[in-house]
Design a protein around this nucleic acid. Structure first.
Lengths: 343, 343
DNA sequence: ACAGTAACCGAAAGCGCTTACGAAAGCGCT
DNA sequence: AGCGCTTTCGTAAGCGCTTTCGGTTACTGT
């Protein structure tokens, strides 16, 4: 975009077609108030000249913007990849461009990216990766988003319920219950938990579900070895090392997401511990590769693509005064990484 | 963005700070021509009011836009995911917003998305997934991009050299040569090729490299069983079925991308054919999961994140009259899916 | 033939910003 | 004091579009 090298303007098209700018504009947008023949001619001329309207001018003058924003920690993370895929699908179908922003798990950057999206006057902001832990950033973001909403912007959050916005939430508690129950049913009693940071509501909810199940089975939740580590593959590795060292008697490792489970699997493979014969391992999320691992991973399926789609659709629908919640069902997917504990 | 619910304007800030709009503008952008005290005051007021400038108005008036576009087939495809990651990283660092568009492998949609990006007057367009097969679409895209460039837009293509634009290209031929050589070195002679559509230059180049190697080893390239299928996991499965049925003597399957290789592996697992003991399998790309599969996949590593970064950086640098090329080095990564052929 | 109506189109006013340009004020110098 | 220079700031002219408003025209019914 250079000022000095001008692009084709609507005026150029209008002149070439022998009509006024107003008529040209009407012909190219909602062609009402223009005779069909004129509109047709203008469109022909525009096409021949290769005219492409300027979105900036259009939204300045017109109002509504044709784009939405998506906030993720890191697009390479499979969890966010799938959400982005859902959002992009809906976006393409609705003729919206999607601006994706990396927060890099940095609250400061997250705040900046939110501001950037607001500056772009996007029609909706989907917050998929939200890492606000400290009240200061959270409050700032909330304030920005509030004023954004005041002038008509829509906000939807995926995976957390905060920022007083519409939210799409996986049934983390139900999923946690299901996967724990699965291990209990197989006969496991010494189950180690490989957890992300408990300050994340996602983690807290999943743990709550696990607690439901084990408590019902008569096992005190506090008895289960639990290691908190970053929600990443490396975190899973570290946690696995720690658990194997401190608790040689565990027969199953329940990881709170697939990434960590993959880390656990790699440690077990390095140590020559057979999965699932010696040790059962479960994940959470059911990322695309979970079924391709060997052994394929027993995990809780989250409909992430769906969640992305739902979030955008929810945001685009008529706004409601109070934040809406939509729960995404999770279900257990039993694959090859779990079995009865060794005798 | 609603017209009737107005957002804070620069004028509001100016009034609150007791200065003119011009001064307010200067204070908030490149603060030249304003005394530091005034600029400071304006910035304070703006911050307190929660003012966020309107990008549309800004780029209409000013010229340069702070955003770039990225075209991919499907963000969920790991190849594109990593490229997108690279582009987003550079974008975040440079303060650019990135608009990602899905083409869904549909030439028509690809064309539309290019137009959308031009309409958004993005500063650069990175074409990662380009599926132009028919001359008509290709010509149309070329025309649009040409006029886009004429007014200062930058274009960079990843993985193909066409559209007369800057390009970042993996050394597909070298990679093909390397992986074929690896199998030859292990002693394989009956090597089946699981190929994407040969009309793709990527495929053609990789095949050329393979031909180089096998020809040098004294094997007529045409003797190798070759199945063309979609460049997807499913395509890999289909191709594998076909090959196993028609060529039971094959000892190695060389797939032209990892996705197809994963499909091949799953077919082999279903049939109980041990990899690599009974059959060696190789991929191409080295997507993130390649190392996590079991057996982990021997493949050709492409620096995809790098390529995304390079493409954007190249586009942002001063343009050159003639299209530049940058070659991304590939290298073979030997893992557990290849071994000497069965005796 | 004429008022009344509907359909079509053009002139012009903005949308919120940047940036010439010019005015005013402060400075050192003769 | 008067001159030119620099610094600082305000006025106003757009950027390319949409949309209101009013003017023309063509068409109807009487």
């Amino acid at each position: 975009m250079d000022r000095d090298r001008p692009t084709l303007r609507l005026q150029d098209v209008a002149e070439a077609a022998g009509v006024s700018i107003a008529t040209a504009s009407r012909s190219l947008s909602r062609s009402t108030g223009v005779s069909e023949e004129v509109a047709e001619r203008v469109r022909d001329v525009a096409r021949q000249m290769g005219y492409i309207a300027n979105v900036h001018a259009r939204s300045l003058a017109g109002g509504a913007s044709r784009s939405v924003g998506l906030l993720v920690h890191e697009i390479g993370d499979p969890y966010f990849t799938e959400i982005a895929s859902g959002v992009l699908h809906v976006g393409a179908k609705e003729g919206l461009t999607v601006q994706i922003c990396h927060t890099g798990r940095d609250p400061q950057q997250e705040l900046e990216q939110i501001r950037t999206l607001i500056a772009n006057r996007v029609g909706a902001i989907i917050v998929a990766g939200s890492g606000f832990v400290d009240p200061a950033h959270q409050a700032a973001a909330k304030a920005d988003l509030a004023s954004y909403r005041r002038f008509g912007g829509r906000v939807a959050v995926i995976g957390r319920h905060h920022l007083s916005a519409d939210a799409v939430l996986p049934d983390n508690r139900g999923g946690g219950r299901a996967v724990a129950q699965h291990l209990l049913d197989l006969g496991h009693r010494r189950i180690a938990l490989v957890s992300g940071m408990r300050s994340l509501t996602t983690v807290a909810d999943r743990l709550a579900g696990i607690e439901d199940a084990v408590t019902a089975a008569g096992i005190p939740f506090a008895d289960l070895p639990l290691v908190e580590a970053p929600f990443t593959r490396l975190g899973g590795k570290q946690a696995a090392e720690e658990i194997l060292a401190a608790h040689p008697d565990v027969t199953a490792v329940l990881a709170l997401n697939d990434d960590m489970a993959i880390g656990v699997l790699s440690v077990l493979r390095d140590r020559g511990m057979a999965v699932p014969e010696r040790m059962s391992v479960t994940g959470f999320d059911d990322v695309a590769v979970a079924g391709d691992l060997a052994p394929s991973l027993t995990t809780v399926h989250l409909p992430m693509v769906d969640m992305g789609e739902q979030a955008l659709l929810m945001a685009l629908k008529e706004p409601s005064a109070r934040p809406r919640r939509r729960t995404a069902e999770c279900h257990l997917v039993v694959r090859d990484s779990t079995a009865v504990p060794p005798a």
